Amino acid sequence: SEHYTFDGEEQAIRFMRDMEAKNLKYELQIHNGKYIIQVD
């Protein structure tokens, strides 16, 4: 699995939509205002 970190919500949402379009599962965590997305 890989981790991707985003500072902004818009970037994170765009990335998650992209993952959904590719049928990839992901998990979102928010730490200290950063959006951390783990992709299986």
Rank of each mutant, 00 (worst) to 15 (best):
R14Y: 06
D40G: 12
G8V: 14
S1N: 11
L28H: 02
R14A: 15
Q38F: 15
E20T: 05
N23Y: 06
M16I: 12
D18E: 14
S1F: 13
I37F: 10
T5P: 02
Y26W: 07
M16N: 01
D18V: 07
K34H: 09
I36N: 04
D40Q: 14
E2M: 15
K25F: 08
V39N: 02
R17W: 09
H3K: 13
L28Y: 10
F6M: 02
E27P: 00
I13W: 07
N32T: 03
K22V: 06
A12G: 01
K25D: 05
Q38R: 15
M19I: 11
D18A: 11
R14S: 12
Y35F: 10
I13Q: 11
E10G: 05
I13L: 13
M19K: 01
N23E: 07
I13T: 09
Y26N: 01
R17H: 12
D18F: 10
Q11T: 07
T5W: 11
Q11H: 08
T5E: 12
I13M: 12
R17F: 08
I13Y: 11
E10Q: 08
Q38C: 12
I37R: 00
E9W: 15
I37Y: 02
F6R: 00
E10N: 04
Q38L: 14
K22Y: 07
Q11M: 09
I13C: 06
L28W: 09
D18W: 13
K34D: 02
T5A: 08
F6Q: 00
N32P: 02
D7F: 09
Y4K: 03
D40K: 14
I30Y: 10
E9L: 14
M16R: 00
Q38S: 14
D18M: 12
F6H: 00
E10H: 05
K22S: 08
H31F: 11
E2P: 11
E2G: 14
K34N: 05
V39Y: 04
E2T: 14
N23W: 04
T5V: 14
G8D: 15
I13E: 10
Y4W: 10
T5G: 03
H3V: 15
Q11C: 07
Y4N: 02
G8C: 13
Q29P: 00
Y26G: 04
D18K: 07
V39L: 09
K25A: 09
I13D: 09
I37A: 02
E20K: 05
M19E: 03
K25Q: 08
I37S: 00
L24F: 09
N23S: 08
N32G: 10
M19Y: 03
E27R: 12
E27D: 10
Y4V: 06
I36A: 03
F6D: 01
A12D: 01
T5D: 04
I30S: 03
D7R: 03
Q11P: 07
Y35V: 03
N32Y: 06
I36F: 10
F15D: 02
E9S: 07
H3T: 15
I30D: 01
I36H: 11
N32L: 07
F15E: 02
R14I: 12
E10M: 06
E20W: 05
Q29M: 13
V39I: 10
Y4I: 07
T5N: 04
I36R: 04
F15M: 04
D18T: 06
L28F: 11
Q11W: 06
Y4A: 03
L28E: 01
N32E: 11
G8W: 13
